[in-house]
Amino acid sequence: MKIDRTNPIWRFHGITPMAIFFFAYLYLPIIVLLVLSFNENRLATIWTGFSTQWYSVVLDNSDMLRAAQNSLVIGLSATVIATIAATLAAMGMARGRFRGESGVAAMLTLPLLVPEIVTAIATLLFFIVIGVKLGLISIIAAHTVFCIPFAYLPIRARLDGMDPALIEAANDLYANEWQAFKRVTFPLLWPGILSGAMLSFIISLDDFVISYFVGGAGSTTLPIYIFGMIRIGITPEVNAISALMLIISIIFVSISFLIDRIRY
């Protein structure tokens, strides 16, 4: 491979092989999972032949689709609410010190410090005491709590490294502070916002313990559904739904890429 001298990576020898190893490690289980979703045998550990039957089984399984839909609704709602709240908070926190700042900062990261199982039980008891009916809404409320710090930290990290002069300059040049935000702060901030939103979404989609406890009748999410299925062993059905989730994610991401292209 030709060395690109404009990219300083070449000076650090270990970096590229390490990144390659990282992606291999990351995708190895995914490849196994994809391959096994085409396994004819019901038992995932025994390969008997190629088949696409599990995909039709999954698409026919209304319970599983309902669970997947629940998961997406919860993930998207919690991500949107949490990302907005976290972005605002990060901007408020990033400039200068104020009295009680460390207390506020601790509050913002509190959900990360509490083990999931404690959060789950505490939230369940709390919802009952204040009389919230358990269901999708209660899960969204609980997920938003732990999504806020996951969105907040990357945004804050991004803001901390930003040159304050840029915003000052913007404030000098634009009469309207909303415009300053839209034209300067936000474009600079968005890689942080994007990684924050992504983190939130993933963690919500993946959550099992909290949804399990805070959920009510009819709010089974995909992790809970899959948890129920693996009691007899992981079946190709589970692999197939995972593969479908991957495809949805790739489509979702590609669309956002396309929209981006058109706008620029």
């Binding site: 709602s77 968005w190 956002s256 929209i259 981006d260």
Partner: peptide, 22 residues
């Protein structure tokens, strides 16, 4: 802007699905 389009699409989807579930 990319993020905004994602967020808009996402919230629209979430609201629609919630309505369907209700």
């Amino acid at each position: 802007m990319k993020l905004r389009s994602i967020l808009l699409g996402a919230s629209a989807f979430a609201l629609l699905s919630l309505g369907a579930g209700a």
